[in-house]
Design a protein around this nucleic acid. Structure first.
Ligand SMILES: [Zn+2]
Ligand SMILES: [Zn+2]
Ligand SMILES: [Zn+2]
Ligand SMILES: [Zn+2]
Lengths: 142, 142
DNA sequence: TTAGAGATGTAATGTTATTACATCAATTGC
DNA sequence: GCAATTGATGTAATAACATTACATCTCTAA
């Protein structure tokens, strides 16, 4: 099954974590989230990790592998390139500014299809694809 | 400066780590490498991390972000898509089998250029790009 | 010969993630 | 109503990954 099109009802902990990520300006580590939620009763890492697992499964949150951190989903496109991954669309990519920590989430058909073609040609069956560009955003590169 | 075309002379520790990675069938974590090299005098994680840093800088080793692990470079292509990254070629991508842990390293012009175009259009200056496809290799998917 | 740069050794610490086990709450079937 | 199941939660302990700090050591260039 793919992730549901409509966001599922969140549990209390999931809602707290999702809210924290939405308020944040950039990605946060699980332990940073934990610290932000201590006032709301969070005491242990597992409370955060469990919520993040579900939110990721729902496609509402993405994990940035090169940062060991998490961001709320920011994609604004229609469903496309439907596949086994993500929010019912194809692979998501991220551009991460190493100066201001801003993250841009985007989806690129051509990249997605090209990687899909490569996989097909090799008989490789993708389950999850990570694309992360580290560098400097326009503002910070100036 | 880009990485040198010719591999530089390696220090003793760098050579030991590189050799361990080349002998390995798949990616290894820094601590796994440490354990393999205890007989050769390695005692602390930092000895491994320092060597890995240099080898990565030389383009002889790649870090797999989604695994927190390292592989010896396996690319066999000519220099192309020259850029600020890697061994004098463009971005490298990896397909990682979650069943047998085999890793395929490849370079795809179209993907590279497409991501480069996206960056250009946004004024983003890439320093390092990570592309990792997790899934099942042909053999394991059968 | 001495000052600087780079490599090394070691210990301690910091950061990220998981395992194990107990408990609680909502749902289902009887 | 009342077990049985399922999923969410709480807590502690531990595992896995990575860095900081500091002391040597070696080579080389002035
Ligand atoms: Zn998204
Ligand atoms: Zn920036
Ligand atoms: Zn390579
Ligand atoms: Zn396989």
């Amino acid at each position: 099954m793919n992730a549901p099109i409509v966001s599922p009802a969140l549990t209390k902990n999931q809602a707290l974590v999702f809210d924290a990520l939405n308020r944040a300006e950039g990605p946060m580590s699980a332990y940073t989230i934990l610290d932000k939620l201590r006032d709301h009763g969070f005491r242990a890492p597992l409370q955060v990790y469990r919520a993040l697992d579900k939110l990721t499964e729902f496609g509402m949150v993405h994990r940035l592998e090169s940062l060991n951190a998490f961001v709320a989903c920011a994609h604004r496109e229609h469903e496309c390139c439907g596949g086994a991954q993500g929010h019912g669309h194809g692979t998501v990519a991220f551009a991460i500014c190493e100066s201001c920590n801003q993250v841009m989430e985007f989806h690129d058909h051509k990249v997605d299809h090209q990687l899909g073609d490569w996989a097909k040609s090799k008989g490789f069956k993708p389950s999850k694809t990570t694309i992360e560009i580290r560098g400097l955003c326009e503002k910070c590169a100036a």
